[in-house]
Each structure stands twice: as C-alpha cells, then as structure tokens.
Design a protein around this nucleic acid. Structure first.
Length: 465
RNA sequence: GGCGGCGUAGCCAAGUGGCUAAGGCGGCGGUCUGCAAAACCGCUAUUCACCGGUUCGACUCCGGUCGCCGCCUCCA
C-alpha cells in the first residue's frame, strides 16, 4: 500500500498517514450548519474532503467517513423559535438542499451522516465524564469547560493563554463563568429556546460538544483524520480536543487537515459584500457543475482559490477539452496490436498523477501528469503511431484518474435528436454536391440551436456547445 | 496590537538554493480543412510584489517595506 502524506496542522508538517488500525482510515469531517443554503466557498471544502477520501480509498485504505449536520445552534434557534418540531421544520429543507448540492458536484456521500439533535445523549454523557474528571463545572444550570484544567489548550492553534487573556476581544460575560476563557458545554434553558430534559438538567448542547461526542461515538476515542475549514482551527477544533482528551485522557485525532478559503474576485466572501454565491445561483447562470467541481479541485487545498468568472470560463473550456478527448479516444480507429510506447507513457502519467496525490494531495501536479498523457495520446492519434493495446491502457489510466477527479463523464448524454440527424444528413448531401452555401447555412442554423458540427475523416459529428 | 498564511506570465495555478521557472485557459503565427471545429507544430515570465542582506550562486534562506486573507472564545 502506498504511503499517503498529509499536511497536519498539529505538527505543521507533512506527515505520513499511519492509521490507528492498519489499513483502515477513520475520518471525521465538520459538516454544514443547516440554517441557510451552502455557498460556493462552503462547497469547496466538501470537494476537498471528497478528493481526500477518494485518494485514500484509491491508495487501498478502507475508509470510514463521518460527517455531522449541525441542526441546532444559536443561529437556528434564533431563526426558528419553538420546540424541536419547529427546528426540524426549519432545517429540513436546507439539509435536503445541501445533499443535493453535494450530489450535483459529484461529492460522494459520507458513510455516516449524523445530525446533532439525534445525539444529545452522547453529548450529555461526555459532559458528565468531563465533570467527573474535573474539567467541567456547573453554574446556574449551564456547564463550562475549565480551560485552566487543560494545560495543552491552545496547542493546535498555537495560542498561549497569556495571549488569549490579552486578546483584543473581551466579551461581557453573559453567563457566569469562572474564567472568561472557559466555554459552554451545555446551556441552561432560556425562554423560547428548544431544550432537552437530561441528567444535566433542562437545556441544550453548547457550540462544540457535538463534534467531539459524535466523532468518538462513531470512530472511537482515538481516530485518524479530522477536517474542517481554516476558520475552525480556533476555537472549534481546539475546543474539540480539550473536550475529547479531557474526557478520555487519550489522544483524540492524529492528523488535522484544514482547507483554505475561497476568495471571490480576490476578496473574502461575506454577506455584507454580497458575494456569497450559492450553487443554484451559478447553475442558473448556465455554469456546468462539472466545470465547478474541476475548478474547486484544481487548486491545492491549502491555498486560497481565487474564484472569478474568468476562472469559471477557463475551467469550462478545460473540461470540454477533456470531454472531447475522451470522445476521440472512444471513437479512434487504430490498428490491432500489443501496447507499445503510448501505453508506457500512460503508465508514467499514472505514476506521476498518484505520486502527486499521495504526497499531500497535490492536485495541480497531478493534473499536469494528466494533461501530459492527453497530449501524448493526441500526438499518437494524430500520427497513427498507436495501436489498440495502447488505447486500452490510456482508457484505463484515464478512468483511474477519474476515480479521484470524477469530471470525465459529461453528465447528460446528448439526446438523439432526429431533426439534428436529418439536418446533418441534408448537409452531407449538400457537401457531396459541393453546395457550400447550403452546407454553411445548415451549420449556422444548428449553431443557433447550440449544436456544433465537426467534419472528420469518419464523417460529420455533432456536440452541444 | 498579537499569531499565521499568501503575493510567480493577460487570467487560473505548481515549483526548486545552481541544467531551459510545471500544467491549464486565453492570445498570436503555421499545418490540416471547401470554410470551420478538433488535433498537431511554433511563439507568448531574462523573471518570480518591492528594498536590502547571507551565499561562489536565491524566485527558493534572513531582515525590512507595501498589499491581500484568516484567526485572536462563545459569529451581536
């Protein structure tokens, strides 16, 4: 099994992955808060997770992929006052829309999807364990994590407690905490808010407890990879570590993977700037979701991806080019024969691609290897220097690449449109009579309907623009 | 104010202390074509934000400047 290396925020180094259980990677990915539709910046994160999981599977690991759905938090409570039914009614459409978005972008579903509201019991148990071990205390019906009891606090984000105390933001304490740094594990019920009756009292879970509790519930007290956006490093992931390790005394996660943000026209995305585009907005503009997947996957996960309309257009062209190539590959007529030079080039490309992916998911270099193969195959096809055995290997390698990328299938099959076929036939006859005016007229008519014609040695074919 | 990341061609985006600074998109010229499209061939950064320093040699290491992005406790 090849060694897969990943940049680990905890060590700030590219570490070889050695799972707790050999051959089996357990991974937890922070999921959406379903109080609104996901925007394209959110979705980049899930494409990055998808590429990671597919790469691990391709390397031969069994992967257990868990993702949470935050369906109760301050924003949701504010938007949907009332009980659990009101919360569910509010979040369900956003949850559905989220998974539709994932499917549109060809993101594989996690093995386990866990909504917070269905795991209150696990969270309560965890808070109880923290109280027993002296890491948590109760105050006015709420429970807090005592930062002072966990000296390791701040290791992931590399923040020291002195710095945190002197932080620019000192909030007025709205609950009664022993220390301003302490964070809520469980919040006492307040009028109008959803609440559960539990051994901790009448209330609801705090901000961070769900991920620690559910991750450990499904993946064990120590597991391999935890992902999130860079904005989750602090405080969310720092608090997860404190909760989990405080409760068990064992290491929580071996490798922390954080994905960088998307920039919109070189600016951060913010609702105040009005540049938080949702997937459905982009699709309405006629943008191909496969091109979006390609664009989101084409930059390294730790660099800010500059999302511009020009970049989207370029990705669209690139993906179309790949689809043209796959079609040429399937239609190519070459002599029978055993694999030769092109097959060897294909195997080199395969190695280059996966070496790059296994080395910290370097998709840009992997793509360079892919385009190298496309180029070589085109040259061989152009000069007829390849045989059937070569093309079999090229197809196999391209399929292998697509296990990760999943962009080579154009999606909708071109519908066989009898009118189009009839017009092409008419044009072919016109061309046979050398009636170019008529031929061009038909071509232009079809172009007006979004159909492009290509005259090849094997006859005229068409594709949608 | 503190911590961290980034600044590479028209655009997107890799990369290394020293052979010609990946790849994609776009553009220009050519081959092919009735014309196109696709494909192929050639060209498209003497230079890696700027200024210093270390070094035989830096885009890559160090310092500074400018610009952008994120985080700095419960997103009121």
């Amino acid at each position: 099994m090849p060694v897969v290396r990943l940049y680990n925020t905890m060590t700030r180094a590219i570490d070889p992955i050695e799972p707790v259980e050999p051959g089996h990677v357990r991974i937890y990915c922070c999921g959406p808060t379903v109080y609104d539709h996901a925007h394209i910046g959110n979705l980049r994160k899930y494409v990055c997770d998808d590429v990671l999981v597919r790469t691990l599977r391709h390397a031969g690991y069994r992967v257990t992929h868990v993702m949470n759905v935050t369906d109760v938090d301050d924003k949701i409570i504010k938007a949907a006052s009332g009980g659990l039914e009101a919360i569910r009614a509010y979040t369900a459409p956003y949850t559905d829309a989220f998974f539709q978005d994932l499917a549109t972008l060809r993101i594989q579903s996690p093995d386990i999807v866990c909504p917070a509201t269905e795991h209150i019991e696990q969270m309560v148990e965890m808070v109880q364990r923290l109280v027993e071990r002296g890491h948590a205390y109760e105050s006015d019906g709420s429970y807090y994590f005592r930062i002072a009891s966990f000296p390791e606090y701040g290791r992931l984000a590399r923040l020291d407690s002195a710095g945190m105390r002197a932080g620019a933001r000192v909030e007025v304490d709205e609950y009664s905490k022993d220390d301003v740094r302490d964070f809520a594990l469980w919040k006492a019920h307040r009028e109008g808010e959803v609440a559960w009756d539990t051994p901790l009292g009448h209330g609801r879970p705090g901000w961070h407890i769900e991920c620690s509790a559910m991750a450990m519930h499904y993946l064990g007290e120590s597991f391999d990879i935890h992902t999130g956006g860079v904005d989750n490093i602090f405080p969310h992931h720092e608090n997860e570590i404190a909760q989990a390790e405080g409760a068990t005394g064992k290491p929580f996660v071996k490798y922390w993977v954080h994905h960088e943000h998307l920039l919109m026209d070189s600016q951060k995305m913010a609702k105040s700037l009005g540049n938080t585009f949702k997937l459905r907005d982009l699709l309405t503009q006629g943008i191909d979701p496969v091109a979006l997947r390609y664009l989101l996957a084409s930059a390294h996960n730790r660099t800010q991806l500059n999302f511009t309309s020009e970049a989207v257009e370029q990705a669209t062209h690139t993906v179309k080019g790949l689809h043209d190539f796959m079609r040429r590959l399937s239609e190519a007529r070459v002599d029978e024969g055993e694999p030769r030079e092109l097959a060897q080039q294909a195997e080199e490309a395969r190695k280059g691609f996966f070496d790059a992916m296994y080395n910290d998911l370097q998709t840009p270099q992997a793509l360079a290897a892919l385009f190298d193969l496309v180029k070589n195959a085109n040259i061989a096809l152009q000069h007829k220097t390849c045989v059937t055995g070569d093309l079999d290997v090229v197809r196999d390698v391209m399929r292998d690449f697509d296990e990760i990328l999943d962009v080579l299938d154009p999606g909708e099959e071109p519908v066989l449109d009898e009118d189009i076929e009839r017009m092409i036939q008419e044009r072919t006859e016109a061309r046979a009579r050398r009636d170019w005016a008529k031929a061009d007229e038909i071509r232009q008519a079809l172009e007006g309907g979004g159909v492009l014609l290509e005259d090849t040695a094997d006859g005229t074919r068409w594709k949608r623009a």
